[in-house]
Design a protein around this nucleic acid. Structure first.
Lengths: 141, 141
DNA sequence: GCTTGACCTCAAGTTGACTTCAAGTCGCAA
DNA sequence: TTGCGACTTGAAGTCAACTTGAGGTCAAGC
């Protein structure tokens, strides 16, 4: 089987070796053996790093990602928890949509002050209500 | 006109006074005057903080948010830039949707290893391609 | 007039996610 | 067998976004 040096993984993913070592230290990925001192990564690590990248861009911490996918890329968390995560994401997506719409609105609305524009206020309201709901759901701000 | 003490703003928004001072320091909000030493915030600050919260939850840095909305809650950035931001958000939303679907999939798919499941691979592919596109667009990871 | 409590400033500390550094190790080609 | 370069380690540094702490100020109520 062909294993990968840290440098090869770095080259394939664009992630710095130092970051990969960091990921290994916190348990996001693991090397299977050593060639001398050098870590040897199994090819699956590339897919795991894909998952890590997705999780990061979703705003999850490395710790949260580790909890979602474990060190081998398989979820170690009960189904219900994963679904709860997915629900969180849904909320976050709606918030992002509100922000996107707000941005488009302020770009195009000719009103002198947006604070008086009903469309604007409605958008903000949506976001505010969402945030409240998600705070209840998981104690985040 | 009724102005707000930092404590009132904190109570109304759930944001810590220390954070509000920090926001003022980095130019996200501004107080209009002082009552003795105490900052007096105009009521509009509440809406501005709403915008800040939206931006944060969208993963923007305070600096980026300041660039989007300025210190008075009005965009100081040309229309085209705002639309570009909105397009970024669209990309991010699609990524989040992919992650959400991936999560739901791993929660429900009975396959022993997801790395072999075509649905899973397709989801990952989508995310990979999106990330590449968004890297091109704005030099993020 | 004095206390109280909410504010003030400035500096230092914290957390997460890394990066950088110095000093060392190893495999491979010459 | 020696030298090169890609790796190794652990510790320290960096950055954003705050929080905490120490010591100070002020307006209002008693």
């Amino acid at each position: 089987m062909k294993f990968l040096d840290i440098g090869e993984v770095a080259a394939a993913t664009g992630i710095q070796p130092s970051a990969l070592r960091h990921y290994e230290k916190v348990g996001l990925i693991s090397s299977v053996s050593r060639h001398g001192l050098r870590r040897q990564f199994p090819p699956e690590v590339l897919m795991q790093l894909q998952l890590v990248a997705m999780g990061k861009s979703a705003g999850f911490s490395l710790e949260e990602i580790a909890a979602m996918f474990g060190r081998n890329g398989m979820p170690e968390v009960p189904r219900a928890a994963l679904h709860a995560r997915a629900d969180d994401l849904d909320r976050q997506i709606h918030e992002l949509e509100a922000l996107r719409d707000t941005l488009r609105h302020v770009a195009d609305c000719p009103a002198p002050t947006h604070l008086e524009c009903p469309t604007f206020r409605r958008l903000m309201d949506v976001a505010g209500r969402r945030r409240k709901a998600s705070r209840q759901a998981r104690g985040r701000g």
